[in-house]
């Protein structure tokens, strides 16, 4: 997309709103659905990766130190990582 979605006019759309750019759903921010965000205390983290495995948005990635962070552009704040983390690294905080 040359323009952001909220800048697209009706004239910019392809016929029938067909999408010609593969994978452009990655440009769709789902982070603004969130009311709570995950906050981490990595001192307890054992780097098991369960949060990444369970994340339904696949928005968790491993940072340089090997800890798993949430990409807040996509994270919908569902809290599944918080529920599944065996060492209680994650708490959910109001946005």
């Amino acid at each position: 997309m040359t323009k952001k979605e909220d800048e697209l006019t009706w004239k910019d759309l392809e016929i029938g709103a067909v999408i010609t750019e593969p994978g452009n759903a990655s440009q769709y921010r789902t982070g603004d659905w969130r009311t709570q965000k995950p906050v981490h205390d990595f001192s307890r983290c054992i780097k098991c990766g369960l949060c990444m495995i369970y994340c339904p948005e696949a928005c968790r990635f491993q940072n340089k130190e090997g800890y798993f962070e949430a990409d807040l552009f996509y994270c919908k704040g569902c809290g599944i990582c918080y529920r599944e983390c065996p060492t209680m690294v994650i708490t959910m905080e109001e946005e």
């Binding site: 979605e5 909220d6 697209l8 009706w10 910019d12 759309l13 709103a17 999408i19 010609t20 593969p22």
Partner: peptide, 14 residues
């Protein structure tokens, strides 16, 4: 191409 896609509020009116 992808046809008949998801059209969130930001694009449906257009």
């Amino acid at each position: 191409v992808a046809m008949g896609d998801f059209g969130p509020p930001v694009i449906y009116t257009e």
